[in-house]
Design a protein around this nucleic acid. Structure first.
Lengths: 231, 231
DNA sequence: TGTACATCAGTGAACGCGCGTTCACTGATGTAC
DNA sequence: TGTACATCAGTGAACGCGCGTTCACTGATGTAC
């Protein structure tokens, strides 16, 4: 029984299969319909309490109470609160895929900026919807938690791969300098995308609207990944 | 007695004064030399334990033990662990100043890229030295803790102001499109600077060296803030 | 320079809360015939 | 279609740990004369 099975998810190598039926209890048994619903409600409440109060005081007891279940029920599905958050993060690594797929479109043509804009808007929206879980994912990964690191890698990988490809293509076309490291360039763009939504409220106080932010980041990303001018 | 006085720091409006002597105990008394030393050791140990174990299990008891003091001593200077971390973060807002000052140099000339590189290198080094505290600062601010938000604003403000000025100048010179929001552009550059150091280990595994990362970010920042080509 | 007193700084030991966690159990659902 | 049994799912109540926090106290330092 691998460590990650405790979280009720299959190992990271095969998460892509979306085997919702293979969800397990903490003792390793595969669970049925009713139990899957309970587990889902526990996850949903975990996510909403995370948004309400932050990760600091998120207690098993509160999650259970909110679901209307005994704390013992929680432990049937998760080893602890972190484990539940990890499961939520793993789900996001899957549900973000349609957005990373948007990067498969070519940005080097006339409508490149439009496509960049659509992408940035979609990604910003994803952060709006999932900020609390994403923030914990990033934090725990930064803090060297190997399980969260694996999930973050899985989450970021499609973005990185697609962006690296764009940079290499632009370098081949002599639009981007060879001194740029393709990985680092992609990382910088992703870093801005992952960090900026957290500054949103500050910006809005200063009069920078959400749309202005998206427009700006789209232009910057478009330039960083294709070499087109910012003028 | 304002809230922030508890942390042993003066209020954020006048932190710039560096009034190390005005440090107070939790009961509001101004404290003497010996006590200032004790407080410093408590802060230093807090920072090092933060680096070792992360914020999750940082206990007052451990900090005290490591300093060789009673837990009661800790409470003479800080309301709790968060309060000590806030004090550390406040110190960083001051000690980062020399780096934000580097942004006062003009980047639009021939040596602009060199200056960008020096700046990025210095800032990356600052993250190397203070990552654990900076990460908590960013996290708590993201989590809407008002005290940490105030410190983050104080920390970021000089960077933002200097970068915004660069963007505006480049816009006036028609090197950057007017559609770029100056604040958002500065924010995106700062976001990449603040986030990328956390990806470092991942990059190094993939063969992207520290220097390559600095070179790349410097070029991207230089372009975003001056409009010079990336080719 | 020495003594007496005031204030500063630090502490040991204990209390008690709050939560994590478990276990023996009950109730619900599924299935064989 | 009904009955008996097996397994799944959920629970109440309690234990106990670990830590935060405090208080009455001791020891250290400073100062007045």
């Amino acid at each position: 029984m691998s460590d990650s099975a405790v979280s009720g998810e299959v190992s990271s190598e095969s998460v892509s299969d979306e085997l919702v039926d293979d969800v397990m209890a903490t003792d390793g048994r595969v669970i049925g319909r009713r139990a899957i619903q309970t587990r889902r409600r526990l996850l949903d409440v975990t996510a909403s309490l995370l948004a309400e109060r932050g990760a600091l005081d998120l207690k098993v007891i509160d999650v259970a109470r909110e679901v209307g279940a005994s704390p013992a029920t929680f432990y049937q599905y998760f080893a602890d609160v972190e484990d539940a958050i990890l499961a939520l993060a793993t789900e996001l690594a899957t549900s973000v895929r349609p957005i990373s797929s948007m990067l498969e479109l070519d940005w080097s043509g006339a409508d490149g900026l439009d496509r960049a804009r659509e992408f940035v808007a979609a990604y910003t929206r994803f952060w709006d919807d999932n900020g609390p879980v994403l923030r914990i994912l990033m934090l725990r990964a930064d803090d060297r938690d190997d399980r969260f690191r694996a999930v973050r890698r899985e989450y970021s990988e499609p973005f990185m791969a697609a962006m690296v490809a764009k940079v290499r293509a632009a370098q081949d076309a002599r639009r981007l300098a060879p001194q740029l490291d393709a990985e680092a360039t992609a990382g910088a763009v992703l870093a801005a995308l992952d960090r900026l939504p957290n500054y949103r409220q500050n910006f809005e106080k200063r009069g920078t609207s959400r749309d202005a932010m998206i427009e700006t980041v789209a232009r910057l990303a478009h330039t960083a990944l294709t070499g087109h001018s910012l003028a």
